[in-house]
Each structure stands twice: as C-alpha cells, then as structure tokens.
C-alpha cells in the first residue's frame, strides 16, 4: 500500500496513514472505520425515519392505550368471568379485530407519499436504495411493535391490578371445567402470560405491517396500501373458515381464544404468520420480478 492511496481517503480515515508499515493493521483499521461509519449512517437513517413517524405513532399509541384500558376495565362487567385476565381478553376484542388498520394506517402512508412527491428519488445520490429501505422498514417495524405492545400490556396491567378484582361465581364445574390455552400460566402468572402474548401479538403486527409496507413500495393507491392488510386479514379469516381450518387463521395465532382450546394444534401459532409471510413474498416476487415494477420510479 503506498502513500498516494491514502491521499483520496475520507477525512475520518486519515489516521490510517500513520500505520503504513503494517498493511494488515491498516486494512483492519479501515474496515473497522467503514463498519463504524456504516453503522452510524444506518442509525442516523433509522432515527430520521422515526422522526417522520413519531406524531402519528404517538397519537395512535395514546389513543389505543386509553381505549384498551377503558374497554378492559368496563366491558367485563356484563360478563360472568373467572379470572381477572379474562377482562383483558373481553376488552381487547375490538383491537384484535382492527389491529391491521392500527399498524398500517399510521405507518405505511409515509412510503406512499415519499414515492408520490419524488422525495425518494432525491435520497438516491445520498444513500443506497437497500440501506434506505431497510432503515425505513426497521423504523416502521419498531413503530408497529410499539403501537400494539404498549396498549395490550398496559391494558392487561390495568385489568389485573387497577380495576376491581373479579369474584367468580363458581370457577368451572366438574361437568364443564374451565379451560384455557396455557391454563397454568394464565391462572398463576397472568402478568407473564399477558406480557408474552402482547409480545407475540406485536410481532404479528410487525408482519402484517410489512404487508402494507410491501404494498406501499409498488402500489400507487393509498387506500389499497392502508386497508390491504385489513382486507387480507378478513379474507384469510373467511376462506380458512370455509375450508374448515379455523385453527390455522391469522386471528387464531393472534388471539388463541378465537377458537376452542381443544382445536388448537402445535401448528396454530405459526400457520397464520407463515401464510402471511408467504403472501408477502409472493407479492414481492410478482411486483419486483414478474411485473418488473421499481420502487424508485424516475
């Protein structure tokens, strides 16, 4: 490595010129610097994407948290329940049904507008396409996760510790014993159950948001982008029910109490998300490879 080769390196890599005797050390220093620089750029990009999404995401989280807490602490009064966490299940029904809208609408509009007003094209000279889209997806995924996790977990916490405790009339009978998926954890460690289920639901939320994200990369109709995940959820639910496979629906994976606990199989938690991931992959292949659509349209 001669001295001239360093003349054109960026300012941040100038230190490498002092260690010219050892080419291995020099290469290692450069690689580390490049790696650090890349990580920093990625971090800045993700931070930038968060700043674009923060207002709708914060508003959605605030609205959903308040709504979920109110519903979990009030709706249960019309039901005869055995456990406090059941109040959470009753109060979350609306959120369980509408969650694809809540993760797609506050997030997926961004990509549509960046494509529409050609903002995306102006990012091309400054940052690589893959890097920019990855940063965008990471920010969107974290936002989707937060949008679902905070309302679910906080409403469960309120249902368990803030509202009046549920006093069961008769906790199951011999003829019809109380049954619930993961009954032990549900009955004895309800906060852990709520935490894990909220975590799982938020991850499914990230996957369904990804469907909206992929649609926003290629489609020019904002209504299809924002409501596509919800329509998918409804249609998948409908068709799998007709095909007598309700235990493999996305909603069954999302909310295990959607079907009787006896019907749940070991595949049930993963079938819905797997099918959704397959649909996202097929959509990407159709748009990007078959129809040759590009995200960055000049």
């Amino acid at each position: 490595m001669n001295k001239n080769s360093c003349r054109y390196t960026p300012v941040s890599f100038q230190n490498c010129c002092f260690d010219l005797d050892n080419s291995y050390n020099y290469k290692h220093t450069v690689d580390t610097a490049i790696h650090k620089e890349r990580k920093l750029t990625m971090f800045r990009l993700i931070k930038n994407e968060f700043s674009k999404l923060k207002v709708p995401v914060i508003l959605t989280v605030a609205f959903l948290t308040i709504a979920a807490i109110i519903l979990s602490c009030t709706l249960y009064q019309n039901y005869s329940l055995d456990y406090d966490l059941e109040a959470w299940e009753v109060g979350s029904e609306l959120l369980n049904f509408l969650f694809p809208l809540f993760v797609a609408v506050p997030i997926c509009w961004l990509m549509y507008y960046e494509r529409k007003n050609n903002f995306l094209l102006y990012t091309m000279p400054r940052v690589g396409k893959a890097k920019y889209l990855t940063a965008k997806w990471i920010a969107a995924a974290v936002s989707a996760f937060v949008i679902l996790f905070i309302p679910y977990f906080l409403s469960a916490f309120f249902a368990l510790y803030i509202k009046q405790p549920i006093v069961p009339m008769i906790r199951g009978t011999e003829a019809s014993p109380f049954s619930h998926i993961y009954l032990d954890m549900f009955a004895n460690a309800p906060l852990l159950y709520a935490f894990l289920l909220s975590l799982w639901k938020s991850m499914i939320g990230v996957i369904i948001m990804s469907l909206g994200f992929v649609l926003s990369l290629y489609i020019k109709n904002i209504f299809v982008i924002l409501t596509g995940p919800f329509i998918y959820d409804i249609l998948e639910n409908f068709f799998l029910s007709i095909l007598a496979m309700p235990e493999y629906r996305l909603i069954t994976s999302y909310e295990p109490t959607a079907v009787a606990s006896q019907s749940i199989t070991s595949l049930s938690p993963f079938a819905g998300p797997a099918l959704l991931l397959a649909v996202i992959a097929v959509l990407w292949i159709v748009f990007a490879k078959v129809r040759n659509k590009t995200v960055y349209e000049v």
Binding site: F97, N221, V224, T227, F230
Partner: peptide, 16 residues
C-alpha cells in the same frame, strides 16, 4: 365492524 369493512371496500372500488 361490518359497516366499516363495507366502507373500506367501497373506498377502494371508488378510488380504483
């Protein structure tokens, strides 16, 4: 809920 679903379908049809 179904009414909301119908509204979304009609919005998509109208937009397309």
């Amino acid at each position: 809920i179904l009414f909301l679903f119908l509204i979304l379908i009609v919005i998509i049809i109208n937009s397309l």
